[in-house]
């Protein structure tokens, strides 16, 4: 699997499945500016222009090649209440979890530590 094939319209975020656990992770900027993964969609780094999107693509390619994640690709988002929300309902599901089980997945705060937990709208 190569890196994200076709770039979606911007702004966009990068998401993937963690190799070991399989759950969804998002590229974010660490305090030092380096790209790292977070499980919290609220912290996903939003690429608003081409250089930023290229940086995310390069990170995806690197992380796939070094076996940290699988199925990494860019997702176009809208900014709602200051947070990135995927425009397509499929990827929105990925940032939430099964809609019939609100007790599971990110919508239930799984894998997201308490401090960084997004206040649900």
């Amino acid at each position: 699997m190569a890196a994200a094939v076709k770039r979606p319209p911007l702004p966009a975020i990068l998401l993937a499945n963690d190799l070991l656990d399989g759950d969804i992770v998002f590229a974010t900027a660490a305090p030092d500016g380096a790209l790292v993964w977070t499980r919290d969609p609220a912290h996903a780094l939003v690429a608003a222009d081409d250089p930023a999107a290229e940086r995310l693509e390069a990170y995806a390619a690197n992380q796939l090649a070094t076996n940290h994640v699988v199925d990494a690709y860019l997702v176009d988002v809208a900014i709602e209440g200051g947070l990135p929300v995927p425009r397509h309902y499929r990827e929105r599901m990925k940032t939430l979890g099964p809609s019939n089980r609100l007790d599971l997945g990110k919508q239930a705060g799984e894998g997201i530590d308490a401090q960084s937990k997004r206040v649900s709208a």
């Binding site: 399989g22 759950d23 199925d71 499929r90 990925k94 997945g105």
Partner: peptide, 10 residues
Amino acid sequence: NGVYLQLHAY
């Protein structure tokens, strides 16, 4: 061995 990758997890 029956292991798929789905939307949220394996």
